[in-house]
Design a protein around this nucleic acid. Structure first.
Lengths: 210, 210
DNA sequence: TAACCTACCAAACACTTGTTAGGGAAGGAG
DNA sequence: CTCCTTCCCTAACAAGTGTTTGGTAGGTTA
C-alpha cells in the first residue's frame, strides 16, 4: 500500500464504488473489483490494505463533500422553507455527482453503523437529523410548515423521499438534478392533490420568532 | 426436505426473514440462521433445499398476500384519490405484518430481479407500476391530482415514500399503521407547507371521466 | 550503468461458505 | 414389542473468500 499517486487510487475507488453499488458490499468479491479494473485481485492490496478500507474511503469521501455543502447552506441564514429547498437541491446534486456512494450509503449504513470503524456514520446521521428537525421546527414556529404533523415523521418522510432517489436516478437522464429537486420539493411542500383554486403563497413567514 | 408439517417451516422462515432483514441476504450465513433458530446449520436442509429457496418462499409469501389486498382495492371501483389512499393504507398494514419480508424485498429485489428464478419480482413490479400509474393518470384526468407534475416521477415519489418506511418502522411503536398511513397521505396529498387559509377539499372529483 | 520506485502478477495461505451423507433420539402406530 | 416418521446432530466436502508473500517489467533518478 502506498500513499502517493492519488489518481490511480481515485480511479480504483470509483470502479469499486460502482461494483459495490450494483452488487452490494458483502456480495462483491475483491476479484470482481479487480476484474472491473483490469487487474488481479492481489494487486488491489498495493493501493489499499483491505476491502473494508476501500468502503471506508468511499463513504468518508462522500460524507465530507456532502457536509461541506450542507454546512454552507445551514450557515447562510436562510428561512426555514428556503433552507429545506436548498438542502434538498444540494442532496440531488450530490446524488448526481456521487450516485454510487449514495447508493452504498443508503443500502449498507444501517449494518455498518454497528461496527466501531464506521461509527462516524452514526454521528453524521445524528447531525443530519438535528439539522432537519431544527429547520422543520423553525418552520412550524414561523407558520411556514403545518403544525398538525408529527415532526419526526415529517423528517423521515422528507429524508427518505430524497435519498431513495439514488436507487433509480441515472446521471444524464432526461431530468437534471435541479429539475428533479424542483418537482420533489413541489410535491413535498404543496402535495400532489390539486388545489381547487390556485393560491398565493408568500415566501416570507407570516410570523417570526426572533 | 419435507413438504408436510408447515408450522415448523413457518417458524424457521420467520426467523430467517428476521436475520435476512437485519444483516442482508448475502451477508447472512445459514449457520447464523440456524443459531437464531436454536439448531445446527445442516438441520435447516431437512426443511428447505437451499438458502435461496428460503428467500424465495419468504418473498412469494409476502407478494401473494400483498397482491391479494391490492387486487381487492383495485377491484372496488373507488375514485382515484380513494384508491391511492386505500393502497397506501394497505401497504402500511403490510409493513406492519411482514416488516422483515418488506425490508428484504426493498433491499435485495433490484439484484435478485436479474436471476431467472426471481423473475416474478419483475412481473410484480410492473403490475405495481401499471396500477399506480393508471390511478394517478385517472386522477389527473379527473382533476383530483395536479397535472403539472411528471407522472412517473410522482409514481416513484409515492412508491418510495411508502416502502422505505419499512426500514425504520417497528411494530408496536407509538403510531399504528393506519395513523402513519393517514399522516403520510396527508403529506403526500396536501404537502407539508401550511396553507395560508384552510381550504375546503371535496373528496369527490370536480369533473368525472366515465 | 546502477540503484530505485511504481504498479502489477503468480501463487499460495487460512478460513468461511452452502451443502450433503449417514446416523440417532423421540414418539406415535400397528 | 417393532416399525416408521419426524426432526435434529455430527462430520465432512468442495468451492469461494480476503489477504499475503515474493517476484518482476518498465520507467525515473543518480
Amino acid at each position: 500500500m502506498v500513499s502517493a499517486a492519488p489518481e490511480r487510487r481515485h480511479e480504483l475507488l470509483a470502479t469499486a464504488a460502482e461494483v459495490f453499488a450494483a452488487q452490494g458490499y458483502n456480495a462483491t468479491t475483491v476479484r470482481r473489483i479487480a476484474d472491473a479494473a483490469g487487474i488481479l485481485a492481489g494487486s488491489l492490496y498495493y493501493h489499499f490494505d483491505s476491502k473494508e478500507s476501500m468502503l471506508d474511503e468511499i463513504l468518508t469521501g462522500f460524507l465530507d463533500e456532502l457536509w461541506g455543502r450542507y454546512d454552507a447552506v445551514l450557515a447562510a441564514g436562510l428561512g426555514p422553507r428556503e433552507t429545506i429547498e436548498a438542502l434538498v437541491t444540494e442532496s440531488f446534486r450530490e446524488i448526481d455527482r456521487h450516485r454510487a456512494a449514495v447508493a452504498i450509503y443508503q443500502k449498507e449504513s444501517r449494518q455498518l453503523r454497528e461496527q466501531p470503524r464506521f461509527g462516524y456514520l452514526d454521528d453524521s446521521q445524528q447531525r443530519f437529523e438535528r439539522a432537519w428537525l431544527r429547520t422543520l421546527e423553525r418552520g412550524v414556529a414561523a407558520g411556514v410548515f403545518r403544525a398538525d404533523l408529527d415532526v419526526r415523521l415529517t423528517y423521515r418522510f422528507v429524508r427518505d423521499t430524497v435519498w431513495v432517489a439514488a436507487s433509480w436516478y441515472r446521471p444524464g437522464g432526461q431530468h437534471s438534478p435541479e429539475e428533479i429537486a424542483r418537482q420533489y420539493l413541489s410535491m413535498v411542500l404543496e402535495g400532489v392533490a390539486l388545489r381547487t383554486r390556485h393560491e398565493r403563497r408568500d415566501t416570507n413567514p407570516v410570523t417570526r420568532t426572533p
